[in-house]
Design a protein around this nucleic acid. Sequence first.
DNA 1: CTTTTGTTTAACAATTTTGTCAAACAAAAA
DNA 2: TTTTTGTTTGACAAAATTGTTAAACAAAAG
Lengths: 207, 207
Amino acid sequence: MAVKDSKTEQLIKETAQQVFLKEGRMLATTQDIADAAGVNRTLLHYYFRSRDQLFDTVFVEALTELRSRIHDVIGSQLAFVPKIEALVQAFLEVLVQHPFLETFITLQINQQPERYEELFVQLPGGKERLKTFLKEIEREMELGTIPQMKPIQYFINLFALLAYPHIARPLLQKMFDLSDTAYKKILQERKTVVLALLLHQYKTKDQ
Amino acid sequence: MAVKDSKTEQLIKETAQQVFLKEGRMLATTQDIADAAGVNRTLLHYYFRSRDQLFDTVFVEALTELRSRIHDVIGSQLAFVPKIEALVQAFLEVLVQHPFLETFITLQINQQPERYEELFVQLPGGKERLKTFLKEIEREMELGTIPQMKPIQYFINLFALLAYPHIARPLLQKMFDLSDTAYKKILQERKTVVLALLLHQYKTKDQ
DNA sequence: CTTTTGTTTAACAATTTTGTCAAACAAAAA
DNA sequence: TTTTTGTTTGACAAAATTGTTAAACAAAAG
């Protein structure tokens, strides 16, 4: 009998999540997903009406999580260094779950700007929080904690260093003949590497 | 009359380049491209046989350019610092032309690994050049020119800092309300920002 | 001028993918 | 048990997209 958010519905959503955001198969058809979930294709329509809506549901859910986690940290009362640390932590946690999320954000926001603008960019008070954060970065540069550059460049560096190894994972694994285990290790080390670079704490051997 | 690589063929290819790699519309149909080029859709098939082949032609062409430019620099006899500078320069030049190339590489290499492995990863002597380059990075860390970390992490930093602002352009522009002009300026400044960070030349205000 | 060669077009066919529907089914409620 | 409600299925319809063909066309070569 009926159960709100039935097992099947949940299964389909999780499978779609796997296929889209973990495997990066953005062209997967409804049949592909149904097969992967081991259910009849019609059920995708029964629960999600259309392929588009299923995609959207999965994508928006992941997007919302990422966004809210980032904004929570950015808007928090933490001091600068722990805030950067928390930001790195939060970002990495979401990306480990959905390695292709960043790639999809990139493609989607370019193809349906109006649809996703509200979802990703315009959250209540978002712009203000962001500006405040840039101010904090600027102040930290004044204090000499971090190297001087335009705050937005610092912001870009932060996300670049975190997101890219996930975006380019298949490429890098091939280039350097790295097993899944080996690459995961690199991703784990990444946290310290990125923090050291961002917080200007790196030591060179001599000088 | 017949001209080898006719005007139309060229036009179609350039339009496909524009649509796929500049606008990132990887789902564009043959009709979309024909419309954008202002030609009859049948001509795509006449010149390129299938949609797949057109996509492949455009993608592989860009891929090959990027690959050869990077490997030329990596394999060159330049000293470390000028080599990094040349690498940054080469990479940025290609990315300005094809902002979505990296994103597509990511998706494609994941979906048709065998097809693209030879093309991107396995070029003659590629693996050796790469290893030599990692050794050079390591030696430079010994010398104290750059901060110490696993060479591959340095390599990832390099490409992350360069590629990400192009990949995430639409998102960042929205987030910070930046005009095309403003963003281009940021991309231009990027060269110095990245080099300073990679070569550890950044100055903090006080300390 | 007419032939040849290559280009462009519209009409059509094939395929792939999505979406709908009515009937079969299962389990709880009446 | 019968009814009701929600689930699952297969068959079918619709749409979107790709690919083919034959005929019209244009320009140079003979």
